[in-house]
Design a protein around this nucleic acid. Structure first.
Length: 282
DNA sequence: TGCCAGGTTGTAC
DNA sequence: GTACAACATGGC
């Protein structure tokens, strides 16, 4: 059954930017409607101006998942500190950082290293379809740690994870043994929470920052992927010495600069910059 | 075909 | 601590 939700004035929301920016991997748009899975909900949702029309979940879930409770204008005015981010905000106004499931986000970003977004979506979809609980409409929830932990490396290789299969396998086992991991991470401040996540195999600085930003509301996390690195070097830190691969020191330098420059909501700035990432290379 | 992709790991210095 | 090759796979 369809429900409708009216977005308040002065609190912008842009469904296309939010679901299309690459933070979540289980959404597809068809004929103006987004179809996807969040938690145990198979959701269909579309935006008509200031109205959201949705089915598959109740309004409190939608408000929470899409972070409609946050004062976006306040967040954006706090990071709006230069012409480039200002332009990005103008182009993607209403993009919000979702509140995603910790375990799904953890595994998703282990699957997201050194690859492209269509391939990540394929991996996540295969994992959910094979090991997740079936929902209405034929789609499946992402499995929890207990459901994924018994999988062998070969089974996960079958989900085209490649060399990441042992990492996902070992991480699922760790989470299954320690179901309170997410609660613990949630309670820690950014730096300590990141250190906790870095203990999972297959999780490095970038994946940890994505997980903290998309599943734990640690909004000072500033993930530095190849696009953001290129943009930051080109437009914010032109004096950084040339390097082929990203050294640990360089990552912390870029992310540290971003936190200083954009402030406590640097992660929101990162998503807006990622949303307008240049397609041109080199 | 060859290069690139929401990088991390293991190893050598 | 820093540097760098190896890594599976698919898109373009």
């Amino acid at each position: 059954m369809e429900k409708a939700l009216r977005l308040g004035p002065g609190n912008p929301f842009n469904l296309d930017a939010t679901l299309g920016c690459g933070q979540a991997f289980r959404w597809e748009k068809m004929d103006g409607t987004w179809y996807g899975v969040a938690g145990d909900h198979a959701i269909a949702i579309r935006q008509e101006g200031e109205r959201l029309i949705f089915s598959g979940a109740d309004e409190p879930f939608i408000r929470r998942y899409f972070a409609l409770d946050l004062d976006l204008e306040a967040i954006l005015s706090s990071v709006d500190r230069d012409a480039r981010i200002h332009a990005a905000i103008g182009r993607c106004l209403g993009l919000r950082i979702l509140r995603q499931e910790p375990f799904e986000t953890l595994v998703s970003y282990i699957c997201a290293t050194n690859t492209n977004i269509p391939t990540i979506k394929k991996r996540i979809s295969l994992i959910a379809g094979r090991y997740g609980r079936r929902l209405q409409g034929g789609v499946s929830a992402f499995p929890d740690a207990a459901a994924l932990a018994p999988c062998s490396e070969d089974e996960l290789r079958g989900c085209v994870l490649g060399y990441r299969a042992p990492y996902a396998c070992a991480t699922a086992a760790l989470c299954a043994e320690d179901p309170a991991w997410a609660q613990r991470v949630a309670a820690l401040p950014y730096g300590e929470a990141k250190a906790e996540l870095l203990r999972f195999p297959g999780v490095g600085p970038k994946a940890a920052d994505c997980i903290l930003l998309f599943a734990f509301e640690k909004y000072e996390a500033f993930p530095v992927d190849v696009h953001i690195r290129r943009m930051m070097r080109r437009h914010y830190l032109p004096d950084l010495p040339e390097d082929k691969t990203m050294a640990c020191r360089e990552y912390d330098l870029i992310a540290g600069f971003a936190r200083e420059h954009f402030g406590a909501y640097a992660g929101w700035a990162q998503e807006y910059l990622f949303c307008v990432r240049e397609e041109e290379r080199s």
